[in-house]
Design a protein around this nucleic acid. Sequence first.
DNA 1: TGAATTCTTAAAATTACCTTAAAAGTTTAT
DNA 2: ATAAACTTTTAAGGTAATTTTAAGAATTCA
Lengths: 222, 222
Amino acid sequence: MRILVVEDEKGISGFLKDGLAEEGFAIDIAEDGTSGLEYALTNEYDVILLDWMIPGFSGIEVCRKIRKSKPDVPIIFLTAKDTVQDTVFGLEAGANDYIKKPFEFEELLARIRVLLRKKGSEESVLKLGDIEMNLDSHRVIRDSKEIELTPKEFSLLEYLIRNKGKVCTRTRIIEHVWDIHFDSDTSVIDVYINFLRKKLDTGKGLDHIHTVRGVGYMAKEE
Amino acid sequence: MRILVVEDEKGISGFLKDGLAEEGFAIDIAEDGTSGLEYALTNEYDVILLDWMIPGFSGIEVCRKIRKSKPDVPIIFLTAKDTVQDTVFGLEAGANDYIKKPFEFEELLARIRVLLRKKGSEESVLKLGDIEMNLDSHRVIRDSKEIELTPKEFSLLEYLIRNKGKVCTRTRIIEHVWDIHFDSDTSVIDVYINFLRKKLDTGKGLDHIHTVRGVGYMAKEE
DNA sequence: TGAATTCTTAAAATTACCTTAAAAGTTTAT
DNA sequence: ATAAACTTTTAAGGTAATTTTAAGAATTCA
């Protein structure tokens, strides 16, 4: 996901760059309206953050011009003013949302996620090596082939992958995948690990589920 | 599609409940700000209609609080006032749209549809493979033949198609299509899925409604 | 080697889903 | 107002899939 930040105050743009980078976004910074527009028109961004008061063109003008050739890219205004007028003009100029400075980073992030979600680009997918779990469609893919799992198998795999790299003890597995009030001397886990391994095995032997003798099981890549 | 109406005047809320129910929405009514907020935060709504002047918290406060934890649910303000100020405050608080009382039901409906459309597919025609649903005329076409659906069948299919590619759990279906918020062991869903499949089946067996055992149902093409 | 732990398999028990029919509740037409 | 037609819900039996149990085989580690 790539984001353009058009902002002249270095303190703010730096803060945004660092914070958004941590979240896994790729960030470009433009420091005035002219270069902001140029960046916006010559590149593909998933979201644009636009300061209201910038040198060169005003934020609102930049917004209008971007909208002309890129009607779909989500634009969020960063505004210091909180007057009625500005907000309305901003939305009229084609912004999708706005946020008042000073803002909390979490809130900005939430708004970005909202806009990305609208575009449909967010999927809830867990990965373990070449195994992909889509939580929305409840599908598991490996080698571009679908692997059909039963509900228990699915949630066991989900638990292991969410905790990949950590050993999951039998007790914890039972608590999270089955329920807490479950018979303690049972071998269901063993059986289900076996089911999973069989289904995940592609012939090369690597199923990414490791046995940690005396402790439990662990999902791990490579 | 599930709608929350926060409105203290029983005349209006009653009118809305009946009218929207006829259109196939599932409606909840809250009569003051406090319970409105509680409903909004503890349930999943597709749209929230919020009166400006309500007992408890003011509409605008309720709106702000909803936004904090539910950033993407569309909110429409119902306002008796029509000053610029109010409108803008409403938008600032995170409302997506507003409508002035007294309003025509048709117009409200149109605005609701606009917001639902933004969230999901672009048009008032939903498609699932070769099945087409026209939400305005309430008609379903397959193979250039019309398929007659009852209201419940229609809204079940609508919900499934709006969430195509994602598994819809029984709980979600029962909340959004019926208006049931407690766990009951009813089998209406099964029966209605069966109705839909029978009506949608063109003989080739492909009805695009998949059972995901232990989880729910999913509409999916191909 | 021997004890503990894990793996594998098959069969039993359970659960979830499908289908049908009929009852209950609505709406429409006479 | 009543009957007819339609929609929605409930209930129950059958079937297939999933989950669990149990027991012998295989593996690991001292």
